[in-house]
Design a protein around this nucleic acid. Structure first.
Length: 399
DNA sequence: AATCCACAGGAAGTGCTGGGCG
DNA sequence: CGCCCAGCACTTCCTGTGGATT
């Protein structure tokens, strides 16, 4: 046992494949961002006035996942604050993690050195304190709101309204907002006033194409791997898979990392095409399984209902059908079922998570409903639901 | 052309949690 | 201590509707 462990550790330390694994992790920002020169220049141009003490325009950044929005923003702002010294601060807030008005404000407050309890205060009170805090600091503050669509869809544009108009109440400090989203239709959700002030400048990040992805991967691989650790076909394959997924660079890097880890675990010295294929499966599955595992009970039950109906070869699953199955499963487990209204929302949630595909259709005389299909493998669902269903003695129903 | 199904999905409210503040 | 606050998961009540069938 000890020897075995030692072996694992040894293999990691003296990896034949990895030179520097960290270079492939999603939060690593390289010194150079290939194929984003245009965006970097434009962003820098917009933000540069901050160095002269005036407020840069608010900026809106669009682009699909993994097109370098976050990396470019952090890169440019990092350089800017370095140059600007104490007069410029930038605050990065991810609105997926902080998806309520309160949490965004609290996070903002925390970053300018104000302690805010994570619950309990009225939002207006937090706003007041943020205002005072900013005024006291007397700086140019640039707030990056990443994945801003999550915030607005969930909690409205209240905070955005507050932030874009805050300068009217500040005399000593100035604040700019950079909003980042991968939802191209996001602007439609916004109030006209917020829209115009947030969209003072707009920046679009196009997806990377196959060649660009390959180029990025090569540069990164040179830092991350030992020479000769990759089979020739590995990088093109990773790039091609990611290019099909809207040119998602994060996915490309993730695939490369996972493939290398799989190769290493199986004791090989070279990453091959088959490892990438395995990695692709793993990435897809992990995504779904993780999501499923963390879902609340009723959501899991609804998914289980869809799963069971699918296994029973029922086609054209509708909301009503699923609801009946769900009630049946809930009763067996001795759980009080929730109403159909709620199930309707849960189905939408599952759709948003990408686990199912729900489409509103009209069946004429037979009403208006949603047609639902699973959009992940039943393998992933089994694995994600395994523990709960086993715990509740439902396994035999799902086989 | 009118009807009518089987829901969609908006609005408002409830009860609970987990925390302020004075 | 009592009261307030936000968020969450959910309910109740509701109005709206695409298009096959009558």
């Amino acid at each position: 046992m000890v020897d075995e462990l030692d072996d694992i550790f040894e293999r990691f330390i003296h990896s034949k494949i990895f030179k520097n694994r960290e270079k492939l992790l999603p939060d690593y920002i390289p010194d150079r961002l290939p194929h984003r020169d245009e965006q970097i220049k434009k962003l820098a141009t917009i933000l540069a006035p901050a160095l002269g003490g005036s407020r840069p325009s608010n900026i809106f950044i669009y682009g699909l996942t993994g097109t370098g929005k976050t990396a470019v923003s952090r890169y440019v702002l990092g350089r800017l604050t370095k140059k600007g010294g104490d007069n410029i601060v930038y605050i990065y807030i991810n609105c997926r993690q902080n998806d309520t008005n309160y949490r965004v404000l609290a996070e903002l407050a925390r970053n300018i050195g104000i302690k805010i309890p994570f619950t309990g205060l009225a939002t207006s009170e937090v706003k007041k304190r943020v205002l005072e805090g900013l005024e006291r600091r007397g700086k140019i503050v640039i707030v990056v709101l990443d994945e801003i669509d999550h915030l607005v869809k969930k909690s409205g544009d209240d905070v955005l309204y507050f932030l874009t108009r805050i300068n009217e109440q500040l005399s000593n400090s100035k604040l700019s907002v950079i909003g980042i989203t991968n939802d191209l239709k996001f602007m439609e959700f916004l109030d006209a006033r917020v829209k115009s002030s947030l969209g003072e400048e707009e920046l679009v990040f196009p997806p990377y194409n196959n060649k660009e992805l390959e180029d990025i991967l090569r540069k990164r691989a040179a830092e991350a791997f030992h020479e000769g650790a990759l089979d020739n076909s590995v990088i093109p394959l990773c790039a091609a898979i990611a290019a099909r997924q809207n040119g998602d660079c994060r996915l490309a890097l993730d695939l490369l990392l996972k493939a290398a880890e799989i190769a290493e675990r199986s004791g090989e010295n070279v990453v091959k095409e088959e490892h990438v294929r395995l990695a692709q499966k793993e990435v897809e599955k992990n995504l779904a399984v993780d999501v499923i595992k963390t879902m609340p009970l009723h959501v899991k039950l609804v998914l289980a209902s869809i799963y069971v109906l699918t296994k029973e070869k029922v086609k054209n699953l509708t909301t009503g059908l699923i609801y009946n199955k769900y009630v049946y499963l809930a009763k067996i487990m001795g759980i009080e079922p929730v109403t159909q209204r709620r199930i309707s929302d849960i189905i939408n949630e599952l759709d948003m998570l990408g686990l199912i595909n729900a489409r509103v259709v009209s069946l004429g005389r037979y009403g208006r409903t949603k047609i639902i299909k699973l959009s992940v493998s039943s393998n992933s669902i089994e694995e994600g639901l395994k523990e709960d269903l086993f715990m509740l003695g439902l396994t035999e129903l799902t086989i």
